[in-house]
């Protein structure tokens, strides 16, 4: 049996409300809330980035796994906001965990699906018998250009998964990846903010890949929506995953547990992995979970997970995802947010 042996998530405490952003740009907050189903989003402090959030998330995963971090054979962090353009995020995470020096490390980048891809690769190493444990992480501190629709969603968070073959808490039953070349969203070298192709990001991009992946994966697994206790999709806003779940035939009861984006925003590479962490916090043994990520460019990774008997015993060993989302929030003004996210032009 191969799957997740430990998982953990980290969400910064700062939030900014959608109204706070809309007010600055003269936008209709109510229309955005209806249209995107977004209410607020997480914002990293100036001392938080993909590295710091991932170290915390990965430590939570180590606690739940109850393993010696030195036995982690690979550390893969998927993100589009690695703090360095050149110098790995993963080496620092591995060092902080105590996984060095016998460890494979490389950073992953594939818009919002770098996290799920890192989970897949980590798990494949274990499956191939190359190593006992491997860590896959999805994390981002994404930036949306001021005034752009992305500014209402781009947020911060990290989710980390230790893959192994013993003491598994969620077994991976099937995987599938659906990938094409689709230029819906990009950031060129040396550009600070990404750009997107407006409504082209919807049907031919997010929905085509999400449906394509989910449908094929369920066919391969000979499963129907009603066979799953939970589903989680990539969440660039609140609306897309809600529509995807509905169109694929999932109920609100199946999709709401992992649906974090209305209050978390889009954590990019962290999005569906963080949704999965929230599901694992409450799932019962035997529950099956459909997870489908989406990364622009474009591709979707699909996983069918099944909770094991061990899962309930680890759920409370580290901070859970929902409480991090709901409790101890600090709301920022647009000015604080602009300062924290380095959106203010300053003397060099």
């Amino acid at each position: 049996m191969v799957g997740i042996v430990g998982y953990g998530a980290y969400i910064p405490r700062n939030r900014i409300k959608l109204e706070t952003i809309a007010e600055v740009w003269g936008a209709d907050a109510e229309a955005y809330k209806r249209g995107l189903m977004l209410y607020e989003k997480s914002v990293p402090s100036p001392d938080q980035d993909v590295i710091t959030m991932t170290v915390e998330a990965a430590r939570h995963a180590v606690k739940r796994a109850g393993i010696d971090p030195a036995e982690i054979g690979a550390v893969y962090v998927g993100s589009e906001s690695h703090p360095y353009a050149v110098k790995p995020t993963g080496t620092l995470v591995a060092e902080a965990l105590g996984a060095t020096p016998s460890v494979h490390v490389a950073d992953f980048e594939f818009a919002c699906k770098a996290g799920s891809e890192s989970m897949f690769v980590a798990m494949s190493h274990v499956k191939a018998g190359e190593m006992k444990y491997a860590l896959g992480v999805g994390a981002d501190t994404s930036q949306g250009a001021p005034g752009d629709a992305l500014e209402y969603s781009a947020s911060a968070g990290s989710a980390a998964f230790i893959m192994g073959a013993e003491q598994v808490v969620a077994e991976c039953l099937h995987t599938y990846s659906f990938c094409t070349d689709t230029p819906d969203f990009w950031r060129r070298e040396y550009q600070f903010y990404p750009q997107h192709a407006g409504r082209f990001t919807g049907e031919p991009a997010y929905f085509k890949h999400t449906y394509g992946c989910a449908t094929r994966l369920m066919e391969m697994a000979s499963m129907k929506p009603e066979d799953f206790a939970y589903c989680v999709f990539h969440q660039p806003n609140g609306k897309f995953p809600a529509n995807a779940a509905k169109k694929l035939g999932f109920t609100k009861a199946q999709s709401e547990t992992g649906w974090l984006s209305p209050w978390l925003g889009n954590t990019y590479s962290g999005a569906s992995p963080m949704g999965l962490s929230a599901i694992l916090d409450v799932a019962k043994p035997g529950d099956k979970i459909l997870m489908v990520s989406y990364g622009s460019g474009s591709g979707s990774d699909g996983f069918v997970w099944q909770a094991t008997e061990r899962l309930p015993s680890v759920q409370k060993l580290a901070p859970q995802t929902r409480p991090q989302l709901d409790d101890n929030k600090v709301y920022l003004s647009y000015g604080q947010y602009a300062k924290y996210r380095e959106k203010i032009k300053r003397a060099k």
Binding site: S45, P46, A96
Partner: peptide
């Protein structure tokens, strides 16, 4: 009561 968190310094 306090606990350590990993941060950028």
């Amino acid at each position: 009561p306090v606990r350590i968190e990993f941060r950028k310094i």
